[in-house]
């Protein structure tokens, strides 16, 4: 393997400066980079010395440093916010030794179609803080669709509204450690017999990710007694192109069944 120079910045300013030069890759610590993927790159910037591994709950938000690994997030959120959807999803992603290495920042940057991170963050209306040419705070959705935000920037923090909501997470796999064909993230806030708010995110389809706005509108501010979930997924225009997981029609049907199942469970219908 060709030789590669490594750099070990100790603060974000140094890291962002290094990132502005050519043929540079950031390495958060996860498992994405391998020999063949390094072609064309000669400099790796290891981020593990940056002070970006933390989870803070304050002023109505949970702030997660971009270098925090999946295992730490899942375990810490169990304590800070029992039943948190991100704890449910990240504790089921990959396997224990991989979860000990994957960082939330690296995972959001890559956002593969099988991600167990993207859906929950979209449902949570999470934001991402960036340093670099487009420094600022952006919605996760903006970050995922706007390539400019990824150019030469460093994710420093994920910011999640700290709200009490019931959650349900589903990943469609044939064996537990498979990468999911699709994921469903549902958050519901109920008050007595009324649905105050609902958020549904679906990932893994040809559009990569989406918030199911039409279904959310159909459920929001509705009394539980008036909810009819039959055929609720019919309004979704979703297709799949992952034949190793099954045909698009099969996955559409499975998605509809699981979505109805999740809502039934959360709404206790």
């Amino acid at each position: 393997m060709k030789n590669i120079s490594w750099f070990y910045p100790e603060n974000t300013k140094e890291a962002v400066e290094l990132l502005q030069s050519q043929d540079v890759l950031l390495h958060g610590g996860g498992t994405h980079l391998s020999g063949k993927k390094l072609s064309g790159y000669h400099k790796l910037v290891a981020l593990h010395k940056l002070p970006l591994s933390y989870i803070i709950q304050e002023k109505g938000f949970i702030r997660i440093g971009s270098m925090t690994d999946y295992h730490t997030i899942a375990e810490k959120l169990k304590q800070l916010s029992p039943g948190h959807i991100l704890s449910k999803s990240l504790s089921r992603a990959a396997t224990t030794p991989i979860r000990n290495r994957i960082t939330i920042g690296g995972s959001l940057y890559l956002a593969p179609n099988w991600s167990d991170l993207t859906g929950p963050l979209l449902a949570l209306d999470a934001e991402v803080e960036l340093e670099g040419p487009t420094a600022g705070v952006y919605s996760v959705e903006d970050y995922l669709v706007n390539r400019e935000l990824k150019e030469k920037t460093l994710i420093t923090e994920i910011i999640i509204p700290d709200m009490s909501r019931e959650s349900w997470y589903y990943r469609e796999t044939r064996t537990e450690n498979d990468q999911p064909a699709f994921t469903i993230s549902i958050l519901v806030q109920k008050e007595k017999a009324l649905i105050n708010d609902v958020a549904i995110a679906i990932t893994g389809h040809t559009g990569r990710f989406m918030r199911a706005g039409t279904i959310e509108d159909r459920l929001r501010n509705r009394p539980l007694g008036q909810i009819d979930l039959e055929g609720i997924a019919n309004s979704l225009d979703i297709k799949f192109a992952a034949p190793h997981h099954g045909s698009s029609g099969y996955l559409q049907h499975t998605l509809a069944v699981q979505l109805e199942r999740g809502l039934t469970e959360l709404l206790k219908l």
């Binding site: 490594w6 390495h27 498992t31 790796l44 290891a46 991989i98």
Partner: peptide, 10 residues
């Protein structure tokens, strides 16, 4: 952790 997925330099 899986040592096969970790760069020594990291």
């Amino acid at each position: 952790v899986n040592s096969c997925k970790i760069f020594t330099a990291a």
